[in-house]
Amino acid sequence: PQLADQKTLARQIYEAYLKNFNMNKAKARTILTGKTCTPPFVIHDMETLQLAEQTLVAKMVGSAGALKDREAEVRIFHCCQCTSVETVTELTEFAKSVPGFSSLDLNDQVTLLKYGVYEALFAMLASSMNKDGLLVAYGSGFITREFLKSLRRPFSDMMEPKFQFAMKFNGLELDDSDLSLFVAAIICCGDRPGLVNVAHIEGMQESIVQVLQLHLLANHPDDSFLFPKLLQKLADLRQLVTEHAQLVQEIKKTEDTSLHPLLQEIYRDMY
């Protein structure tokens, strides 16, 4: 009976993942490996960026083109924020579908999302990356790593650590069913600062982590160390988010850019 419960939990989490996220690894890999009819539009310099803005991401580049006269770095930063807000919204819906999450104390739900969404976002972002770049605009565009690196500082420091993480993370060759459980384990984490009902959340986390371990053994029988390797990735993601939050604070202080109110809430008093 316990095994049946664990399989049900794994299935529920995977279904919630497929339902709530617009992009997933299977879709991204199909595009990145050239198996689609129309390849993504490649953004590799200022000219191709402008072309992409006129077509692919017109909706994202500010209402009535409010940002059209701003420098490229600011426009790209704005697009990153829009994508982050969308993913946070998707992650919230996903979290609500994880069995037990919605019955938690509302303050604890807020805390789990505040601390978990960026770790989950960067784990999932790896699916849309290869060593040369990143899928954008729902997979209709591909922005090169070199172009992102060529932006002026501090904006050029934004994505490179995510690429470095993604290349190692993608080496683990997880599929969407593994990722769904990994993302659920990130969100339902018992050691976030300020949690009220720690024991309850630790219990939820234990169930999910146990299911993840069993699922990895069945889905990757040739890699018996995959589970401990993934646990290490949890620590790496925490570090990645800490550094990202510091960079965003620096950008907010030194650059004339706005930060979406939802992202402000998440970053405020984070670490």
């Binding site: 807000v85 303050n107 805390t111 300020g194």
Partner: peptide
């Protein structure tokens, strides 16, 4: 905590899409 995270709180309760940046 909910006071300081009004948008997250709103998302949790009704799933409204946040306003544009």
């Amino acid at each position: 905590l909910q006071e300081k995270h009004k948008i997250l709180h709103k998302l949790l309760q009704n799933g409204n899409t946040p306003d544009e940046v």
